[in-house]
Design a protein around this nucleic acid. Structure first.
Length: 273
DNA sequence: AACACGCCCTGCGCGC
DNA sequence: TGCGCGCAGGGCGTGT
């Protein structure tokens, strides 16, 4: 699913195309995604203009002129796209919003792990799924000092730490895996065992890889598309993710794959220690 | 309290 | 071909 780079890609696309556009009509085609959908979404959303688009962690935020904000999470398989006026509803389209130019803003989510809420704009930061979130990885505050402090007493692996939303947000399985390879750190290393220079390099690599992935329009393994249905192109830049048994680009050793806390980890047994 | 894990759900690819 | 199994980019809630 969409990690930070993919959600950012969608956000930038929507910002370019539907900012200052009014939502004329809202319709849901089922009563739940991951959670039950509020019954009053239509009245909170219809006839309001989208005045700002934001991303917080992997959540997309659409601020409306009526002081409500739509919160969208794409889960593992969510697509949030703009379709033409003659678009016909497809399988797994769960929410459609018709815009003033007759285009349709469509939320499609095969696995339905996504979320869709509408809350007061000024209470977003206190919403249950938002308030506990840690720092944005691309912000200045996410740095060596912060990460060192956060992991120094942790009794878990560094991969689990950088995927922990209460520490740093938006780093999912792909980018955690790739960042650890770039930093030459084995994913099973205990977080507390990292040396200062390793923490410092890891922070840098997380930022660099996410920025590169955003420029490439995200990573498309199978489901992900941007707002115009186009895939991202970062997959071809993945050094280890999904490349088990293939040669490492650096040393030609076979890349290994292991299960780690229920997720796949890929690493080079020679480069990463 | 801090972790690990199950689970929500559909679809796809693989092995038999 | 067909079936069943395992697995997939997330993250909450529960149990230890």
């Amino acid at each position: 699913m969409p990690e930070l780079a993919e959600v950012e890609t969608v956000k930038r696309y929507l910002e370019k195309h539907i900012l200052d556009t009014k939502i004329i009509k809202f319709k849901k085609f089922r009563d739940n995604l991951r959670y039950v959908l509020d019954s009053n979404l239509a009245e909170k959303i219809e006839k309001s203009k989208i005045i700002n688009l934001r991303r917080r962690a992997k959540y997309l935020l659409l601020d409306l002129c009526n002081e409500n904000s739509i919160i969208v999470h794409l889960g593992m398989s969510g697509r949030f796209t703009i379709q033409e006026s003659n678009y016909l509803k497809q399988k797994h389209d769960h929410i459609v919003m018709w815009l003033q130019d007759e285009k349709q803003l469509v939320l499609n989510d095969t696995r339905r792990f996504g979320m869709f809420y509408c809350v007061s704009t000024n209470t977003i930061d206190t919403e249950p799924f938002i308030k506990h979130l840690g720092l944005e990885p691309l912000g200045k505050e996410f740095n060596f000092t912060y990460l060192k402090d956060k992991i120094k007493d942790k009794n878990k692996t560094i991969k689990n730490c950088i995927m922990d939303n209460s520490i740093v947000v938006g780093v999912g399985n792909i980018y955690a895996t790739e960042s650890l390879f770039a930093a030459k750190i084995h994913p099973k290393r205990s977080a507390a065992s990292l040396k200062d220079n390793e923490i410092s390099i890891l922070v840098d690599k997380i930022k660099i890889i996410l920025q590169k992935a955003i420029i490439a329009g995200g990573t498309t393994l199978r489901d992900f598309v941007s707002g115009d249905n186009t895939p991202g192109y970062f997959k071809q830049e993945l050094a280890v993710y999904g490349r088990a048994q293939e040669p490492c680009n650096v040393c030609s050793s076979n890349i290994e794959s292991i299960n780690q806390s229920g997720r796949r980890s890929f690493f080079c047994p020679n480069c990463q220690i």
